[in-house]
């Protein structure tokens, strides 16, 4: 069984965000494999370990994104494709078109994504790829089992969980809780160095720049939220008095009681 995992390379979650130009200032930022993509990768590796086949990691990104692919290879992915370009200049559908085109050249039964890219927080690319390829999708998956040509996946919804049965090929977007991702081992890091990364340009995939970078969604501005001034602070040494003060706040300011 072959899986493809689409990986985005994002600023570390601790990073201080500084707006700049059409996005953020990348200087000095540490980049990581987007956290939800780690659950996607782990699931694909476990399926490979149980059933054989390949796990190909794919990213559409600038030169630095190669590091994300190396990290995934070190954890157990068997192949990697790097499509060079700036996803920040494309909208989600543009990115989805790139990935869908790449998938046409990689044998696969399952296609994994993170439930959302940390940073963009869109949760769009996975289902868009599913639609472009005519595949079924199961989003926000917390548990899955694969059969021959089929799969069962648990989808998290508000206050409940759906059990979904699907045919293959299918798109799965991974939620936290799907599994516990492994770390890369030294042995894995050494072995990963021997695996070549298949580097492609948009033209290699037969894509038109004008379609990928078609401005269906156009950047206008980015700004930081207004700095909270930090409100009042009271001493809670007398719990009854503090409780009265809190209830007063809830009543008069939040108007919630």
């Amino acid at each position: 069984m072959n899986s493809v995992v689409c990986i985005s390379h994002v600023p570390d979650t601790e990073a201080r965000i500084k707006p700049a130009g059409k996005g953020i200032d990348e200087a000095g930022l540490k980049f990581i494999v987007s956290p939800y993509d780690e659950y996607a990768l782990e699931e694909a590796i476990r399926i490979k370990e149980a059933k054989g086949g390949d796990v190909t990691v794919v990213t559409f990104g600038p030169d630095r994104a190669a590091q994300a692919l190396r990290e995934c290879l070190a954890r157990g992915a068997t192949k990697a494709m790097h499509i060079k370009g700036d996803p920040g200049a494309a909208d989600s559908l543009g990115i989805a078109k790139v990935l869908a085109a790449a998938l046409k050249s990689i044998p696969h039964d399952l296609v994994f994504f993170g439930k959302q890219g940390v940073g963009t927080d869109n949760a769009l690319v996975g289902p868009m790829v599913a639609e472009l390829l005519g595949y079924p999708q199961v989003n926000v998956v917390t548990h899955m089992e694969v059969g021959d040509g089929s799969l069962t996946a648990h989808r998290e919804i508000e206050g409940a969980e759906e059990v979904i049965e699907s045919s293959q090929p299918a798109v799965i977007t991974a939620q936290k809780g799907l599994n516990e991702p492994r770390y890369s081992s030294l042995k894995g890091i050494m072995a990963a160095k021997k695996i070549p990364i298949d580097t492609k340009s948009l033209a290699d995939l037969g894509l038109e720049e004008s379609d990928v970078f078609n401005q269906r969604v156009v950047f206008v501005s980015i700004e930081l939220p207004p700095e909270k001034s930090g409100g009042r602070k009271i001493d809670g040494a007398d719990p009854a008095a503090a409780a009265k003060e809190i209830v007063k706040f809830i009543r008069e300011e939040a108007k919630a009681l």
Partner: peptide
């Protein structure tokens, strides 16, 4: 957390939460 709080209470939650629960019940 106090940097984003509109109202910050410095104290022991094990004492303040039960008192607050009672006060809320009264208010309700």
């Amino acid at each position: 957390i106090f940097r984003v709080a509109d109202l910050g209470v410095v104290g022991d939650l094990f004492q303040i939460l039960p008192a607050l629960t009672e006060e809320v019940k009264k208010a309700k």
